[in-house]
Every structure is written in structure tokens, then in C-alpha cells.
Design a protein around this nucleic acid. Sequence first.
DNA 1: TCTGGGGTCCTAGGACCC
DNA 2: TCTGGGGTCCTAGGACCC
Length: 405
Amino acid sequence: MRVVLHIDLNSYFATIEQQANPRLRGKPIGVTGGDRMGRTVLGTASVEAKKLGVKTGTPIWKAKALCPEIILVQGDSDKYLECTKKFLNILKDYSPSLEVFSIDESFLELPNASFEQAIEIGIEMKKRIKLKLGEWVTCSIGISYNKLMAKLASDIQKPDGLIVIEDTEAAMWILDRRELDDVCGIGYGIKSRLYKMGVRDFKTLRKMPLESLTSSFKSYGLVLYNMSRGIDYNLVNPFYEKPEVKSIGHRHTLSYNTADPDKIRQVFYKLTELIARRLRAKKLIGKTVSCWVRSADMSGEGKQSTIDFSDDGLDIFNASWKIFLEVWDRTPIRLIGVTISNLKSKNPSNVTFLEDKLKQDKIIKSIDKINNKYGEFMLKRGVLLKVQPMSRKPNPYLSDRRFKI
DNA sequence: TCTGGGGTCCTAGGACCC
DNA sequence: TCTGGGGTCCTAGGACCC
């Protein structure tokens, strides 16, 4: 039996702010991003604010309406990252199998541990987190036999919880008392599709034949089928094996809707330059530029196109602006988003690896071609002589680990 | 005055090459 | 001249997470 912990820092940004500033403690606070007015939403609501119906993601104007005494605090991402590092350093002590799920959530797998030992570790962890990050910083820990149920378990008791779900029987008992979208992997879209099929809870979902789920949801049908039974085969992905970023993007909601091309172009310049700066900081270049536009009625449209690998803001601007002009119907727009994906390292050593691989691929192809034509043995020897100098170097693609570092 | 901003993953079809 | 099938790249679109 696997033992997986999910550790969730409660109202993270808010508790960090309350820890840093005693005057905020015990009060409803909301942590905001950039601007405090207009069309922005809360990054985090404190426990006190949550009690008054203000949730993370509530628009600021609405938070003020629900809770006029709410104190808005400007968020400080550097501070949170520093705290997260301390948090992860504590978790690392218990197992190398640590997956960083987000800035305030992690999975930890304890090989060869019992649930009793996991509970002890959980209690100790909580103490150490408070000691290191401050008395106000609490976490909810879920312990179970897979990631799905560990995450659900940590959600049950907030703040400062510790819940264990030991087996599938307990899992199903709990699932039957939760909403479909309480589970990680079911969001608004899938929930409403299930509702239309007459499935409103996990009990009913469990009765659905696998075939009818796969016919509606394709491969995700099996995931749903398993979910309703508390089954989840996903492994904990250790942080040191996590691949590099796959895409870098920015979106921005304008402070007011506009159809003024000059204003919009200014935003594009800003977004694309920000993206390019981040690419350069990570020594990456990207190939696919996507642009997404949201109209005043919240409907959206987007497209993508490919460019030559680049980390130049102007290249990204040109590509995204071109897409925008194709997509834009000249009505006022609300949001602009630009993302670059298909990234690779600008690092020359990696580029030579890449070229080596391309060359090797070509050679392998020609070997195969010749062999298919003339038979396996005779001609292989001749071609292999040519490959020799190249294959003396270990192929980095044979070892995942090497390639990722 | 409804609904931010950072991401990831998956599917499917068409183009193109061998 | 009429074909199969595998693989890769590109694009669109959908769904999910925090």
C-alpha cells in the first residue's frame, strides 16, 4: 500500500501577511495582485474573510460589498517564494519523493511507511512549519493511498487539518458525500456534462458502465470511472525530475474595454517584451506564438503561429499582432493574452546535442533503409564504421536524468 | 461593476515525408 | 499509376489546476 501525503498551506498569502504584520491578525484580509481597484480579483482571502463569504478569486468590488471592513494588502511574490523554499526544505527531510504542485501545495510519498507513521510525521511537520514560518501559518494534511484521495483528504478539514483515508472503502464513503467538482480533475465543464447525463454524485457515477463513460469522455472516461472508486494511478513526480517550463505567457485585462488599435498595440508591446525578458532570463528560445483575445461579452478567440526560434520581443510582437489582426472583429476587447511555447534551450551545448541527434537519426534511417533493401548483415558493418566516431560519445537521450540536468 | 493571471495536458485533423 | 501505413509537425480547441 502506498502512503501519500498532500500538504496544503491554508490561505497561504494571507497567513504570511498576518504573520508579518500583527495588526492584520484575526482580521478579514485580502491579498491582491497589482492594482487594487477595477477589474481585479483577490489572490487569497484570509480565514476570517472566508467566513464572511469572500473567497480566493472574488472580484475586489464584490469582496468589499460582502465585507466592507476587509483589509486589502498588496501581494509580495518574492516573500511568498522565500517562505515556500523554507516549507519545501522541511518536507524534503521526510522523503525525496516530493512533488511541488504549486506555491502552496505539495505531494510527498513515504515509501515503506505505515499510516500511523505518516500521521506522526504529519504532526511533526505541522510543528516544524509553524516554527520556521510562524505561528500563524497552518497547513492541512491529507494522507491516503494515492494522490487523488490525499488531495481530497487535505480539503476536508481547514484550517490546520489532518485527515487520513486508509482504503477504497473509506474513500468511496467520503466521495459519496462530496460534490463532483470537489475532486481534482473535475471542473465546471465535466461536471455540467455529467449533470446532463443525469450523474450528480459519485454514487451515480460509479454505476455508469465504463463503455458509456469512454464514449462520452474518450480516454478521460476511464479516469472518471476510477475516480468514483477512489482509484488513481498517478505517481508522485519528484521535483528534481520535473521538466523545464513548457510555455511562457502573459494575459492582461484592460482597465476598460477598448477598440483603439494604438492602445491595444501598446499592451501587445508590453506583454511580448515581458515574455521575451523571461525567455532570456531562462536562456530559452521559443517557436510557437499564441494569441488570445477576450471580447466584452467574455467570449474568446485565439490562434497560434510558428516563428523561427527566438527570444526577441519584436519577433513575438510581430507574430502575435498579426494573429490579433486576423482574429479581432474590431469590437471593443477586454483581455489580451500572448503565450510562447515549443521552447528549447538557447544553450549551445544542448544545441549540439540536438544536432548530434539529428545526424544520428539520419544515419539510423539510412542504415535501416539499406538493410531493408539489401539484407541485414553485410551492409550494416560498412555503415557502422562511419558511425563510430559519433557513437563513442554516450547518447544523452538514452538517459533521461542527464538530459534534464 | 461579474468573472485575474500563471500554467499544463489531451485530442483530433490536415499536411507532408518516407 | 495507384496505392498503405508510420511518423512528425502544425493548428485548433477544450478542459483542468492553483
